[in-house]
């Protein structure tokens, strides 16, 4: 008897739901907007989980790289007249370069020191964006032209969904390749990894560059979609939201972090009338998750499903063997 592989059933129906969402939500453009923002956060949370959960670099500068993508593209358009698309591409590269510098500066810093340094970087960037009124628009923010010549949200929806799927696919490939293997060995024990020949400098810096570029790219697209970016996106509270999404989803799971981000973004919108109490509950959930479910709330479910299928496969294999043996006799 052939058993259903629930992994594919779930992935398939989630994808089908995601692709058909614009039709299902055709009367509710606001919820389509919520979905776009949710995907944006999903990209940020999963790329942060690659940096922190896989490579072990607890950086608080992820929103800063996102902002570099957003402001970079906006400013290039304003001063050099680049198109949004060119701007996004260039500012993604710029985010990667800044990621390179931060990665190199952080090589010797560990744990709380790394966290503090990246907070400082992020804060200096925020203060600068606030202070240089003439260039950045200061606290009022910077207006960005739309990326797509359309007033509909649907194309943006598919764009952000594609971006999420492509970046998740890329990060999964990376995590499964030797890059991921080295990232995790560095997270576990840097000195032992070096003794095993792992070029720790290269891979630590690389983890920063790659995740900074993903964040920068997402930031650029999001900013051109919204049409405005303000330095407020860099306050620590914003970074904590991304961290909370990743932690609640599962800090070591790219998919867990992405799903966590989407679920949280939607529930924050659904519970809108609760105001700030939503975030109070959310902060409490973050602390309780850390204390009592270190692997997050979503990741263990994914893991259980994968394990279940793996066991099924083993049992089926055995049954088949037994059957063949029976036929052979």
């Amino acid at each position: 008897m052939k058993h259903v592989d629930w992994r594919w059933v779930l992935t398939g129906s989630a994808l089908a739901l995601a692709v058909s969402a614009p039709f299902l939500l055709s009367g509710y453009p606001y919820w389509l907007h919520v979905a776009i923002v949710a995907y944006f956060y999903a990209i940020l949370a999963s790329s942060w989980s690659l940096l922190a959960g896989h490579a072990g670099q607890f950086s608080f500068a992820h929103m800063a790289f996102m902002a570099i993508g957003a402001y970079g593209s906006g400013l290039m358009g304003k001063y050099w007249g680049t198109s949004p698309l060119t701007g996004i591409v260039l500012s993604t590269v710029l985010a990667g370069l800044v990621g390179l510098i931060i990665g190199v500066l952080c090589l010797r810093l560990k744990g709380a020191y790394l966290a503090l340094f990246t907070i400082a970087f992020s804060e200096v960037l925020r203060l600068t964006l606030n202070a240089e009124l003439d260039i950045t628009g200061g606290p009022n923010g910077l207006d960005l032209p739309p990326l797509l010549a359309t007033t509909s949200r649907v194309p943006y929806y598919y764009l952000m969904l594609t971006l999420l799927l492509v970046s998740l696919g890329f990060m999964y490939w990376l995590a499964g390749s030797r890059f991921g293997l080295f990232f995790r060995s560095i997270r576990e024990d840097e000195e032992a990894a070096a003794a095993m020949g792992v070029h720790i400098v290269r891979y630590k810096v690389l983890a920063f560059v790659i995740t900074a570029m993903i964040a920068g790219l997402a930031g650029g697209v999001e900013a051109h979609y919204i049409g405005l970016i303000t330095p407020n996106i860099l306050i620590l509270g914003q970074m904590s939201i991304v961290i909370a999404m990743a932690v609640i989803g599962g800090i070591e799971s790219l998919l867990g972090a992405a799903i966590g981000a989407i679920l949280i973004q939607f529930s924050l919108e659904l519970l809108r009338e609760l105001g700030n109490w939503r975030l109070v509950a959310f902060g409490l959930l973050l602390m309780l998750t850390l204390r009592f479910a270190r692997n997050g709330l979503i990741y263990p479910l994914i893991e259980r499903l994968v394990l279940y299928q793996a066991r099924r496969a083993v049992i089926e294999g055995r049954e088949q063997k037994a059957k063949q043996a029976g036929e052979g006799a």
Partner: peptide, 16 residues
Amino acid sequence: FRRMTVLENMLVPAMA
């Protein structure tokens, strides 16, 4: 490398 499987532990030096 505690949170990696035995096999992954073994692969690290070879792939490096």
